[in-house]
Amino acid sequence: MTTTAPADPTRAAAPVTRHRPSRPPRRSSAHSFYRTMTGSAALLWAAIVAVPLYWVMITSLRERADFLTSSPLSLPENSTLANYRTVLGGGFGTYLFNSVVVTAVTVVITVTVSLMAAFVIARNSSRWARWYFRLFLLGLAIPLQAVIIPVYLLIIRMQLYDSLLAIILPSAAFAIPITVMILVSFLRDVPDSLFEAMQMDGAGEWKQLFNLALPLTRPAIVTVVVYNGLQVWNGFLFPLILTQSNEQAVLPLALTLFRGQFGIDVPATMAAVVLSTLPILILFIVARRQLIAGLTAGFSK
């Protein structure tokens, strides 16, 4: 997903300061009516989110026969972990490992090259720097689905087909435009005087990048790490086309393999769904605040 409207310049003055949540003064009857309305709408949506998730959870604990006969939302009569054993015995470790490697390497590559690019763009007003930036702006508009055929050809020619690198390189390439975009809008808010002061002290470009740009853009870097991490972790088309063997399968692709393998066995498929989400769920539970704040910091500043 991409944007062409990254920065909200009016907010640029105070990117980090948090205002207290708006809580307008209390009102009487009209107010409580309003509260009831928004409250019930919120609960309705909560149900729309919770019921499917609950269903996935309890279905993954059902026995196969139980699934076909019992009421979908009832608690399973004999809950079983057998479905999870089936999935874990089906090479889940490999898929998890591949997903972690692909996501971590892609994000590191993307963020490193994008930070350097963003630094150049933000610190240069030359014509080629502007063209350079425009290239990435153009890139925002290219849906990665549209170029899958030439990417497939390219990967074959580079002898990378059916390797993790075949997923990593194109994924990183397509994450660059949005990442550059977010980082540039952050870096532009850093006062020039800070860089100039460093320059006066004799610091070169690289030193400015590591000692000034990097720490100052930390909120934006969290954003792009989280955003790109989610995108790559969940990516499906590149793995679908660019890899084929089980040894190279990442989790989303493995899910479709499991589905094919289990067929009618919906409980086992749901166990695979749960397990594939578990790593990211654990990460979410442990670092919820950082994840949520990180996801929006770069977009909404």
Binding site: V113, A117, A129, V147, I149, F174, E205
Partner: peptide
């Protein structure tokens, strides 16, 4: 020095995006 550092910083993103973004775009 500034320019060469800038070029070195700009090159990796350009290379990666060029190879897997721009080339396929023309390729398609």
């Amino acid at each position: 020095r500034r320019r060469s550092a800038g070029a070195a910083m700009a090159a990796p993103a350009l290379l990666l995006f060029g190879l897997f973004g721009v080339v396929p775009l023309l390729g398609v």
